[in-house]
Design a protein around this nucleic acid. Structure first.
Length: 576
RNA sequence: UGGGGCGUGGCCAAGCGGUAAGGCGCCGGCCUUUGGAGCCGGUAUUCGAAGGUUCGAAUCCUUCCGCCCCAACCA
């Protein structure tokens, strides 16, 4: 392509959402010198979930798209809820999702001293005061949605008195709750956030990073804007519930920006933009509820494959690519939304269909004995690992007289549209032979315990020389060579599309909406030998069944697989 | 009853005064050694409602309706 063409070529993809539109306009206008800096600011009080993944894709995505950078900043201002376990898991998850913060691992707690000095500055400017109302009294004074609040009697304390009290707060002279530092804004504001918000509270608690160095801790509304300003963030993205906080965000930055060298939002400093959080049906997304599921052991930890957490999805077998694709398809807007989990499932299927090697596994085995196949003999088939991608190579699959097929691939009295095996019917064993069922053996209870049949030696590989067709192809595993495995099947965690909504109507809590069948553990599953040493985390398509990933519980000789997602199944859909 | 945000097909979502993109889902058809995958076609005379402005409105104005958020010393 010539250079002039390159310059005149229309943009392949412009801004794809309102956020990128704003950033593009800022860059075009040269705001902040054309610089773009974002941040992803998780509080380390829980594991990341798919909703965070959306935010991560936005924060890191926008930064790289516009040649900027994104800081990973832990919003660790509440020591009683936070823990290093969470910061470690968050770092793992962000990295696994495919994002890099290039050493910019930052903490709000890094700024505690600076934040404290800013607070003294606010006091000196008469913009903050120490209040000594009890939490309950403060609530009384705050007013209601429709009535203005009242001034605290402590609101008029002198600057020197405020400074003295605040220093003694820091020095640990007071009990928790005795005093707080408040911004002096407007107790009559219709926006309740602006009614003299608390900036600092006393918490005699050890912090996971600063230990016992502090006994006063800044509030989010104070620490967040200043952290953004300190780091030179240009675009600060958060969810819609913070829209009402934006005036306070701006107020805090403006309040300390009169000093030389500091910039207010109006002067090119950080600006907050809000977007709608991600909601998924058939699950819950709040950290509080996820924490409850873990603590009450309704699931087996934060990384339970049924959880919408990043670590849960990872263990389930999701790929980072599929999650990023999902976030891209879902879009970024300001409308409340509930995304169908079906879209998430579509995204993994699409990704794994392209990349996952195929293998055969029988979940619920039914033995088929080929009576015309010599007992001592066995065959080997070299089978491509992917039907459309030779680069994935092949593996050797043994065949013998006794093989396992899926129980529901046989019906003694098949209905009209059932194409699979039935007495007298011929089907193909994938990549092997055409076989015909001759007999179903039953036990005393009348249950089918074994099938007898014959194979056609002239159909090696699966095709008949005479061109005769069969309606079905079954997966299979040679009984003599099979590897036994445990396979875990997952269904949605909740039976209701909207667990909290359904619970409200039923008068219970969301726990009552749990799906009792969300986990089904199958033992004695039969795997083809190539699967015997699958490394934990490795993903396969088990032909005709779905995508499966080896679980960390896998032990040598005892594989454990999780079903990530089933294959689309038009037979099952039409015959529920 | 105060403030704020939001309403485009079943679920998302473009659209920015010139006559409704796209994805998922769904419905048909083709193809197929995975009832998978792939391919082709269909799926909103209408944008919460009603008025108004305009040659022309999902886009501008007015009113109304509905949903969500805010009264933690949580984030």
């Amino acid at each position: 392509m010539s250079e002039s063409n390159a310059e005149t070529a229309p943009a392949v993809s412009g801004p794809s959402d309102f956020i990128r539109e704003i950033v593009a306009a800022d860059v075009a206008a040269g705001n902040n010198g054309g610089r773009v800096a974002t941040r992803f600011p998780p509080e380390p009080n829980g594991y990341l979930h798919i909703g965070h993944a959306k935010a991560i894709c936005l924060d890191f995505g926008v930064a790289t798209e516009f040649g900027g950078h994104c800081n990973l900043r832990f919003d660790d201002t509440n020591p009683v809820k936070e823990d290093v376990e969470y910061v470690d898991s968050i770092k793992d998850d962000v990295r696994w999702l495919g994002f890099e913060w290039h050493g910019r691992e930052l903490y709000a707690s890094d700024y505690y001293e600076q934040l404290y000095q800013f607070a003294e500055e606010l006091i000196r400017k008469g913009l903050a005061y120490v209040d000594s109302l009890s939490p309950d009294e403060m609530r009384q004074h705050r007013g209601t949605l429709t009535e203005p609040g009242r001034h605290s009697p402590y609101r008029t304390r002198r600057v020197d008195e405020n400074l003295d009290l605040f220093r003694r707060m820091r020095a640990g002279e007071f009990q928790d709750g005795a005093h707080v530092l408040r911004a002096k804004i407007d107790m009559a504001s219709p926006n309740i956030t602006m009614r003299d918000p608390v900036l600092y509270r006393i918490r005699h608690a050890d912090h996971h990073r600063t230990g016992s160095a502090w006994c006063i801790y800044p509030m989010y509304d104070y620490a967040h804007p200043l952290s953004d300003a300190i780091e030179g963030i240009t675009h600060s993205f958060c969810t819609l519930e913070y829209v009402d906080h934006r005036p306070l965000y701006d107020w805090v930055i403006d309040a300390i920006a009169t000093e030389p060298g500091r910039r207010s939002p109006g002067e090119g400093g950080p600006r907050q933009y809000e977007f709608a959080r991600l909601n998924l049906n058939y699950t819950v997304m709040s950290k509080r509820k996820l924490l409850q599921l873990v603590h009450q052991q309704h699931v087996n930890g934060w990384d339970d494959p049924r959880m919408p957490t990043v670590s849960g999805l990872r263990r389930r077998g999701y790929t980072p690519e599929s999650i990023r694709d999902f976030c891209a398809r879902v879009g970024v807007a300001r409308k409340e939304n509930v995304i169908d989990v079906g879209l998430l499932e579509h995204c993994v299927r699409e990704d794994l269909n392209r990349r996952a090697p195929r293998a055969m596994a029988v979940l619920r085995p039914l033995k088929l004995v080929l009576t015309n196949y010599p007992e001592a003999r066995s065959d080997e088939f070299e089978i491509a690992s992917h039907p459309d991608d030779a680069s994935l190579g092949s593996r050797t699959v043994p065949f013998s007289r006794e093989i396992y097929i899926e129980r529901d691939d046989f019906m003694e009295e098949p209905p009209k549209k059932f194409f699979r095996l039935a007495p007298g019917r011929e089907v193909r064993l994938r990549n092997a032979y055409l076989v015909t069922c001759t007999e179903a053996i039953k036990n005393a209870a009348g249950e089918i315990v074994e099938l007898r049949g014959t194979y056609d030696p002239a159909t090696r590989g699966g095709n008949a020389l005479d061109g005769r067709k069969v309606k079905a192809t079954l997966h299979w595993v040679s009984a003599a060579h099979a590897v036994d495995a445990e396979i875990r099947l997952y269904d949605r965690l909740f039976t209701a599309e909207d667990p909290e909504g359904a619970a409200e109507h039923a008068g219970g809590d969301f726990i009552s909406q749990l799906n009792p069948c969300s986990l089904e553990v199958l033992g004695g599953c039969k795997l083809e030998p190539s699967l015997g040493n699958a490394a934990p985390g490795s993903r396969y398509q088990f032909e005709r069944l779905g995508y499966f990933a080896a679980d960390p519980d896998t032990r040598t000789g005892a594989p454990v697989f999780n079903r990530t997602v089933s294959l689309k199944d038009s037979w099952a859909k039409a015959n529920p």
